[in-house]
Design a protein around this nucleic acid. Sequence first.
DNA 1: ACCTGAACACCGTTCAAGT
DNA 2: ACCTGAACACCGTTCAAGT
Lengths: 186, 186
Amino acid sequence: MRADAKRNYDKLLQAAREVFRERGLEAPLDEVARRAGVGAGTLYRHFPTRDDLLNALMQAFIDRLDAAAEAAIAVDGSPRERLLCWIRGGVAEVTYSKGAAAKLTAALGDDESRIATKAAAFAQASGRVVEALGVDLRPGLDGVQLARLVGGLAMVVDQGDLDESSFAPLADVLVDGLLAPTVVGS
Amino acid sequence: MRADAKRNYDKLLQAAREVFRERGLEAPLDEVARRAGVGAGTLYRHFPTRDDLLNALMQAFIDRLDAAAEAAIAVDGSPRERLLCWIRGGVAEVTYSKGAAAKLTAALGDDESRIATKAAAFAQASGRVVEALGVDLRPGLDGVQLARLVGGLAMVVDQGDLDESSFAPLADVLVDGLLAPTVVGS
DNA sequence: ACCTGAACACCGTTCAAGT
DNA sequence: ACCTGAACACCGTTCAAGT
């Protein structure tokens, strides 16, 4: 890639990061080009669709999501506490940008999605938590299912601008439902 | 309301019902006006915003939701079966139109929403199920919380086009988390 | 009173002309 | 090769002119 192209590519990513954070993932793309100081055509050359731009932005997001999963697995406490840590961490990361939860959850079952690799990373991070919790979880649960539930809760938070006191009881319901019957109520 | 105005109002509702069903809740409004055979201005006179149009359409939807709640309460079986019936019925109604789940869930905590009355009806239907299940449910649960969880699951189904086999385990997680600890695992 | 539809605004997307 | 930005298309919304 030519030096000026690389520079424009980076300027677009930085501008998109700012614009999407301020105005959500449906923000006008011409604002992204304008703030990056490039023509509209340059944006479309580098990122043919909005989701391609989003996909490039999401690398850092996935890194944080992986870190949240590792942190949850490493929690020194009960299975319940480890699971709750992942649900809290996962929801917090996935709701970082308005609309991201819906896009990621939709991409979980769609290989054709432009952000399919990011959704797969979300499912894999969930899968690592599932494996770490092992027999403490209800049998048959897999990473995709857990990611869907975390994504669903994240969408509720995203749509409703829920604060901590509204979020906590919903997370509790999810945790109790996810734990193996013998552990529930302990 | 003048006779011709009433006629246009009804034609717009019928056209919107068809267009929203075919193309989702974000379908172009000029298509609604075109199919109703009226000018664009007439649409905006009767329904200043898209959500006002949606709100008018949703009356029938709320009636079906109420019926689903009554049916769940009347189920001759365990609390688990009654709750599962409501979750299945609620999700089925709320996902009837693509995008409806997200709109309704967002409106659950927003009195300013143009569909606030419909969201309130959703919460009340959930609340009736909560009351009917009484001590079988985890303590502290209210209709809004249950509606949020049903809405979250409905958004997951809506976003991912889930089939029955993918939906069932997620509904099971929710049911187990919602039941009182002493009942879980029975 | 209510309706029509042309007109304007906004934004996504393309492409001819430039460097 | 890559970039620019004018141009086109689409759709939401308004409003002057009609009935």
